[in-house]
Amino acid sequence: MTVLLVFGLFVVIATAHNITFLEVPRYGDPYRDANLNCHYINEKDDPDLHSVKWYRGNHEIFRYTPGQQPPTRTFNSTAGGVTRGSCNQHSCAISVVLPKAINTRISFTCEVSTEGPRFAVVKQTKNLTVAVVLKEDPIITGMPGSVQFGEEVPLNCTTSPAMPPANIVWYVDGKAERREPWMVNHTQVSHPDEFGLRTSWRSLRVRVNTPRGYMAVRCEATQPIWPPFVRSTNATLVVARSPHLSMFTASGINPAVSQVSVLVMTVTLHIFSKYSALSEI
């Protein structure tokens, strides 16, 4: 960053290091420290690095000043302090304690400044939401090897433990399951485990009514946090063909018409066989 300051006939150029990347996880487990990292570079004519500061909201929680001894300093915070810090001329990493309140949103800022006389400053901010997100995609159970046209298939979708628990929605051939207006949410939630995490599950009875040879189903689990955390699983129901009607259905003939055709062919063959037997007498 370059700023031109004009005082009379003098031009003073104040430059700061550039922050190339700020690593702040989007979600943080309340039972684990969150690891943050700030990466920065200096241009050829930049002054030396003066300090790197970390802020939690508006409160400074950590400072790295390479020209001082000791070079690092932590600041007390009622919301949770810094447990570890490791910094150098190009990066500064810290680990912070997170609050236990789920869905708490915290902003972390990395501020980098260069030596005087102007002490130019550059900063970046990212947000972290406290939550135990789903570690795996949901699991679909009850999938048969194949199904028949008109058959009703019971399926179930289950998530891994998380907090807050996920809401589950089923999709059949890309469309959300049909629900009555009074059906707010049929997702079932378990009791909390020893860590306070809950498992979600939801059942679906899907009727096979497609003329195609398959039906696509998808289970989508969404945790109600900001931004929402989503995991999903896809599966395919294979629709078996009737062996007696396959030659008609393959040609696109209506199954009802094909049944009449089979009946006509059967009667014709019976009459023909009877006539042939009479002609031999």
Rank of each mutant, 00 (worst) to 15 (best):
P243W: 08
W226K: 14
T222R: 15
R241H: 04
A240W: 01
M247H: 14
A250R: 13
I225V: 15
A256W: 04
P228H: 14
A235T: 01
L237R: 00
S242D: 15
V230T: 15
A240G: 09
P243I: 04
P228T: 14
H244I: 05
T249N: 03
A250H: 10
R231S: 14
P227Q: 11
V257Q: 05
S251V: 02
T222K: 15
S246Y: 07
R241K: 10
M247E: 12
F229V: 09
F229N: 13
P224A: 01
F248V: 03
R231M: 15
V230C: 12
P227F: 11
S232H: 14
I225R: 00
S251I: 02
A250Y: 10
W226D: 15
A240R: 13
S251A: 12
V260T: 07
S246D: 11
S258F: 07
L245W: 03
L237T: 00
R241P: 00
P224Y: 00
W226M: 13
I225P: 03
G252V: 03
Q259L: 13
L237E: 00
P255W: 08
I253Q: 06
Q223N: 10
S242M: 02
P243V: 06
V238N: 05
V238D: 01
V257F: 06
M247V: 12
L245F: 08
N254H: 14
A250Q: 13
P228C: 12
V260D: 05
T222C: 06
A256G: 03
S242H: 14
T233S: 12
V257T: 10
T236I: 11
I253E: 07
P255H: 09
P224M: 01
L245Y: 04
A256Y: 06
S258W: 04
I253Y: 07
S251Y: 04
H244W: 05
G252P: 05
S232W: 14
F248Q: 03
N254K: 13
Q223W: 03
P224N: 08
M247D: 12
A240S: 14
S242T: 07
N254M: 07
A250N: 13
V239F: 02
V260W: 08
Q223R: 12
V230F: 12
P224Q: 07
I253S: 04
V238L: 09
T233N: 09
P224F: 00
P255L: 08
H244E: 10
Q223M: 15
Q259P: 00
L245K: 04
S251R: 12
V257L: 09
L245E: 07
R241F: 01
I253V: 14
P228M: 12
T249F: 01
P227M: 11
R231D: 09
Q259A: 11
F229S: 08
I225H: 00
T233W: 01
S258P: 02
P255T: 08
T249R: 01
S232K: 12
T222L: 10
V260M: 07
F229A: 10
T233I: 03
T249P: 02
A235M: 02
A250L: 11
S258E: 07
R231I: 08
P228D: 13
F248K: 02
N234C: 05
I253D: 04
S242N: 13
